[in-house]
Structure formats: structure tokens, C-alpha cells
Deep mutational scan, measured.
Amino acid sequence: MDETGKELVLALYDYQEKSPREVTMKKGDILTLLNSTNKDWWKVEVKITVNGKTYERQGAVPAAYVKKL
């Protein structure tokens, strides 16, 4: 869990989004888990830093590609 009490997951593999509802992640990324009720796809929040600014993006990733921490 992070400092706000939200559950975290670890990306076990790289994943490139294939639709606007998904998010890209790299192996080793730590993501915030938002919903894991679907056994195949979990909704997560990814933090992306671009030019020193951090953005948050929500989307789905394959459940088999992440592990709860």
C-alpha cells in the first residue's frame, strides 16, 4: 500500500497499450491498483513524468502482467 492506503501492484512485464482504455507500463513499474474485480484486466493508475511534470493516467492492464505488493 502507498501512503494514502491504496493498494500497489508491480509490473512483471512490459505492456504497450492497444486502445485508449489501456495504459502502457514497463517491467518494474509500481502502479496504483484502482479495481481488480475483473479477473483478466485490472484498472490501474500510472504516474508519467514528462519534462519534469508528473501526470496521472488511469487505464486497464492485463492482470497476469502485474502482481499485488
Rank of each mutant, 00 (worst) to 15 (best):
T49N: 09
E3L: 14
K27W: 04
G28A: 02
E45P: 00
T24W: 04
I48M: 10
E22Q: 10
T37F: 08
T24G: 08
N51F: 08
K47I: 12
Q16R: 09
G52F: 05
V61R: 00
I48K: 08
V9Y: 05
L31I: 06
T49Y: 10
N51M: 09
E3W: 12
N35T: 06
K67S: 09
D29I: 03
L31W: 02
L12T: 02
L33P: 00
Y55I: 14
V44H: 00
Q58G: 04
V50M: 11
W41P: 00
D2I: 14
A60T: 14
L69N: 00
V23I: 14
T24D: 01
T24C: 04
D14E: 04
K26R: 12
K6Y: 13
P62M: 05
Q16M: 12
N35A: 10
W41R: 01
R57S: 05
A60G: 07
P20M: 08
V23A: 05
D14C: 05
W41H: 01
V46T: 11
T37M: 10
L69S: 01
S19A: 07
T4D: 12
I30E: 02
N35H: 07
T49P: 03
A63K: 05
K27Q: 08
M1S: 13
E56T: 15
T32P: 12
I30A: 00
T37V: 09
E7D: 10
V46W: 06
A64E: 10
G5S: 12
G28N: 05
S36F: 06
E7L: 10
M25N: 01
L10P: 00
K67T: 13
N51R: 07
Q58E: 08
Y13E: 10
E7P: 09
T4K: 13
D29Q: 11
R57I: 09
E22D: 04
L34A: 02
E22L: 04
K27H: 05
R57L: 08
T54L: 10
E56N: 14
S36I: 07
G28S: 02
K47T: 14
E17S: 15
A11V: 09
N51Y: 06
E45N: 08
R21Q: 14
L31S: 01
W41S: 02
V46K: 12
L8A: 05
Q58K: 08
G52C: 08
M1W: 13
Y15N: 01
V66E: 02
I30H: 03
R57G: 04
T49Q: 10
K67M: 14
T37L: 09
L12D: 00
Y55H: 09
R21L: 14
K67D: 07
I30R: 04
E22M: 05
Y15K: 00
